[in-house]
Design a binder for these strands. Structure first.
Lengths: 233, 233
DNA sequence: GACAACGAAATTGGCGACAATATTGCTGGC
DNA sequence: GCCAGCAATATTGTCGCCAATTTCGTTGTC
């Protein structure tokens, strides 16, 4: 659409020009989750191959894969768009997270070594500090880190994979939530409860604490959408 | 490998020859889950395009998608094979099912209409009869049907999608289990308990019953693998 | 007789071209 | 002035070809 003239920065994939087999997927995925592409935005194959300095077939196969991952939607002969996930879908995702992160939390409670417990405790302390300082973005990052570490500690590859996929799908909702005023002070004690349960190697308490936390996230999602007017993301 | 001469039956995809965009994926997926291809078997692109009477690029893109679904594994420049899932992986899958089908079971208990409850009860009755008759294959089918209907009743699209994917990955383990002598008489009461809980619209009991059931499945998987010698599927 | 080096065959990876389809803009009639 | 039909354009879908890579078989040497 004539914007090929406005010399757009080309994001070279992996350094070498035009190559990078599987990493084209990673590049486009990151661009979507980072918000470079808006929800519902059309993803034209030739534009993308241009932007990422790769071939159209590479982009094509990447879009196929991202469709499978739930980040992109395609219609026959009508191309691909960034998937926009509705509030209802975000709630569904959170319900699944509730179950699966509950499992991971329980497993982490079983397996965590003293060092790993110390690591979680350190994250908890940092969270406390960040909330006290009113550092919303920092807290959001620590939040992601905590959830990720607990997933990893579970050593449940199947659950980890599913959760990673779902996380990518709901980054926007997740981020919106983090910016909600007063939200950190609600979630902080929930996070600390999870850490405590894992530290005490109490799988049942760890699962319950995680479920409580994500239940509260679901509630917050619903509330936030009311104030925001039910926008899709 | 010179077996192109033995006139192998060509399974036309979708009737018309050589077409059928997305349904090539379905055809190969079915062939894998039906056991036409053994685990670890190589999937040569030209062979498949021959067998399903389609183009190599269609097969190629199908294999890409099936890799994403966890049914196929690929190595750079070395082609695709049918993924073989180990006992440990099967247990992981079952743990995830435990959580997610637990969720679906609870939601089904909330939502099920009288008609739907009657339908589940009918399945339960049929199961009882099939066990009494010693009809193992029939029971296995009814088993799958029950789990599927509960998933559908939950109207949790996200969980349904994940579960469907995982089911395809573990069909072999699932089938092996169904053939285990004495297994039906163990699982029958568990299934009936799930149905009862849903019929009584008791989400908590429904979730618990489902978790108990799949916990028992995990135990059975482990036992079966001992007698079978820890074979991969 | 075993093994390394080499060459041939099989297979995958990727690009370019072309056909099929959808979208957009234009023209003429009412 | 609005709408139907048609032409032009943009975009996707698919195929065939060739290069890159791996695998398999052969030959020659020790």
């Amino acid at each position: 659409m004539a914007n090929r003239s406005e010399a757009r920065q080309q994001e070279r994939v992996k350094g070498r020009g035009g190559r990078g087999g599987g990493s084209v997927v990673a590049a486009i995925r990151e661009a979507i989750t980072r918000g470079d592409f808006a929800p519902e935005q059309r993803l034209v194959e030739s534009d993308l191959s241009d932007r990422f300095d790769t071939s159209r077939s590479a982009v094509r196969s990447a879009l196929l894969q991202l469709t499978e991952e739930g980040l992109v939607e395609r219609e026959q002969n009508r191309g691909a768009r960034v998937r926009s996930v509705s509030l209802e879908e975000a709630v569904e995702i959170c319900e699944v997270r509730m179950m699966l992160e509950g499992l991971c939390s329980a497993k982490a409670a079983e397996r965590a070594t003293p060092d790993e417990v110390a690591e979680l405790r350190a994250i908890g302390d940092r969270m406390r500090q960040l909330v006290a300082d009113g550092n919303v973005l920092g807290y959001s990052e620590a939040n992601q880190l905590l959830h990720r570490r607990i997933r990893e500690l579970s050593e449940q590859a199947t659950a980890e994979e599913v959760l990673e996929r779902l996380r990518a799908q709901s980054v926007r909702h997740q981020f919106q939530l983090a910016l909600q005023p007063g939200r950190p002070s609600v979630s902080l004690p929930e996070h600390l409860a999870i850490i405590d349960a894992i530290a005490e190697h109490d799988p049942l308490a760890a699962e319950t604490a995680m479920r409580t936390h994500l239940g509260s996230v679901i509630g917050a999602l619903r509330e936030a959408s009311q104030t925001m007017g039910g926008l899709r993301f």
